[in-house]
């Protein structure tokens, strides 16, 4: 496979994943705004922070209100992380690697782009928002379904998944890192209703509210939430799950190509570092430190993969 093709696949799926994560973030913010209008502004600000676009946002807007944030995160073409920008990028990458995709994957991507582009032509009303967010998630699900159902499970498949999981790991870690303080036991208003809302936001941002209901005893507990999102390998957006998947797909590449690269060592170290932790030790050594370390390693691993597999000339 061409190095450029591997790069195109990796980024195509990173961008698709990012569009879905952004949609989920907006969804979480929207719920809080609906239920607790007093905290809304702070919540929207924290969502802009999580998306890593605070500077760009403030260059354009003065206030963190629903209309501004939603428009900036969904539609703004000057925001390189807006859903419109990233699905455009995903499609451009898909066009570049058209020969590596089945007709089904390409059509799902292209159709998704056309659908979402049409939906986002005009500013999004609050009434229209849930439907649009659902559409974004559904279009992504179609692409992933086509990927799983129609593509050969070869290196094409592996590079696509490396993109998905590097991006997802980064997103989950960022969501936690922005909100980590609400999970700390020292916070004075533990058990207050504010806390519950914050925890709910975190769970929603990673689509884990249902999993949490089933896996926990039902009461909101910061340790259990952190454990689920960081260490639980059954949770498809947890850090441990993502790191494991990255390592696994790198393993398939090593098998197919007959040799390991430096990224394999990094990936193993990445997995082991999480495995060596328990939720207690994470809180002991400091949640923020653990998350920063994870984000740094995850980025380094992504860059190493780009070098090892000659993404760029």
């Amino acid at each position: 496979m061409l190095g450029k093709t591997a790069a195109g696949l990796f980024w195509m799926f990173r961008f698709l994943e990012r569009s879905e994560n952004t949609a989920r973030l907006v969804d979480a913010g929207f719920r809080i705004a609906l239920t607790r209008s007093a905290a809304a502004e702070a919540e929207w600000a924290s969502i802009i922070n999580t998306a890593g676009v605070r500077q760009g946002f403030l260059e354009r807007y003065d206030a963190f209100n629903a209309a501004n944030v939603i428009d900036y995160l969904l539609r703004d073409r000057d925001n390189p992380s807006s859903v419109m920008s990233v699905i455009g990028n995903a499609r451009t990458n898909a066009r570049m690697v058209r020969t590596a995709l089945t007709r089904e994957v390409w059509e799902a991507t292209n159709e998704g782009w056309m659908t979402i582009r049409d939906l986002l032509k005009r500013p999004v009303s609050e009434n229209g928002l849930p439907d649009i967010l659902a559409t974004i998630r559904r279009q992504n699900a179609l692409v992933r379904g086509a990927l799983t159902g129609t593509m050969m499970q070869n290196d094409v498949y592996n590079f696509a998944h490396l993109g998905i999981f590097i991006e997802r790991a980064d997103n989950t870690a960022r969501i936690l890192d922005v909100k980590y303080y609400v999970l700390l036991p020292s916070v004075s208003y533990v058990g207050s209703s504010l806390d519950n809302v914050q925890w709910e936001t975190i769970l929603r941002s990673v689509s884990a509210q249902r999993a949490y209901r089933w896996l926990s005893d039902g009461t909101a507990n910061p340790r259990q939430i952190a454990d689920l999102i960081i260490l639980d390998k059954r949770m498809p957006r947890s850090l441990a799950f993502c790191a494991g998947q990255i390592s696994e797909h790198l393993g398939f590449l090593a098998q197919a190509y007959g040799n390991e690269m430096p990224s394999h060592d990094l990936a193993r170290a990445h997995v082991k570092r999480l495995a060596d932790h328990s939720i207690e030790s994470i809180f002991e050594s400091g949640l923020h430190g653990v998350l920063s370390d994870f984000i740094g390693r995850n980025n380094a691993l992504g860059q190493q993969i780009e070098r090892d597999y000659r993404f760029y000339g």
């Binding site: 496979m1 061409l2 190095g3 591997a6």
Partner: peptide, 23 residues
């Protein structure tokens, strides 16, 4: 067959070769 652009290609050992994930 592969779809290549100029930037995927380079002169290697007297031939025009494409940059792949394996060399």
């Amino acid at each position: 067959v592969e779809l290549v652009e100029g930037q995927d290609l380079q002169l290697v050992d007297g031939r025009i070769a494409m940059r792949t994930t394996r060399g």
